[in-house]
Amino acid sequence: MRARPALRPYLLILPALLLTCGILYPFGLGLYYTLFDFSAAKPRPDLVRLHNYETVLTQDAFWHSAWVTVLYAVGAAGVETVLGVAVALLLHRSSLAGRVLEKILILPLMIAPVIAAIMWKLMLQPSVGVINHLLEPFGLGGVQWTDTPAGALLSSIAVDVWVYTPFVAILALAGLRSLPLSPFEAAQVDGAGPWYTFRRLTLPMLWPYVMVAVIFRFMDSLKVFDIIYALTEGGPGDSTVVLQIRAYLEAIRFQRYSFGISYTIVLWAVVYLAAMVLVRHLGRIQRKAAEVSA
């Protein structure tokens, strides 16, 4: 096959383009469904235009879920960032043990989040759970981990932190290893203290790497599903019903398809907005980091 030179790149991406359309099609179909009142109970739906979105946005349940989702995302991404950077700094500092520990570091990240949630569920269980047993000597036994609203949310965040802290740590570590040496040498010559060096050099130059990790983590945790589904199923009550869980309950459990998809579309819009803001911020701190290292 001899292609016209100008056509060649298009031919090469054609299969991927077709496959992408294959994935875009259900997406478009879903968007289309949201304009109807399609459900298992109503297989011949009527056009309701934007009524589904109107209902979603005026429902207390939505705002509750949105609030829980944001709490979860901010909490998880926040703790992971701080903990991940700390772990990276500590690993970077220690040499021999660091190399060995680094191998272990990725372990939680390679475990399916749903499996991780199962593990933690078993540990937090009131009957066989080992956590309460271990806490007993400290007078903290008998905590109802996943049976109180706050406990359930915190437990879910803990699982997220357990799985994804290595993600931040790995990217931060890669950043630390690639920092240019010359600014540090200059600082040493100038007699700068370790705290000053860290605040004024390490952190600003490291920040772009951390920011990439934060963007991934924040946007992913906005659409958390697996961990909550396995750990709390949204309970107790609806205290941990994040947006994707709500969409699942509406669409799959209650089979109100149109309504359920409307939830995910709104979530998608939120994720998209968050991404825009964060990516713009990333650009800014990348420029700043470039200034520091120059």
Partner: peptide, 20 residues
């Protein structure tokens, strides 16, 4: 488009696919 898949809520696609 591919990158936005990475950040799209899975259920946006799955629910229509469930029907489809």
């Amino acid at each position: 488009t591919l990158l936005s898949f990475r950040f799209a809520p899975e259920l946006t696609v799955i629910i229509p696919l469930f029907v489809l």
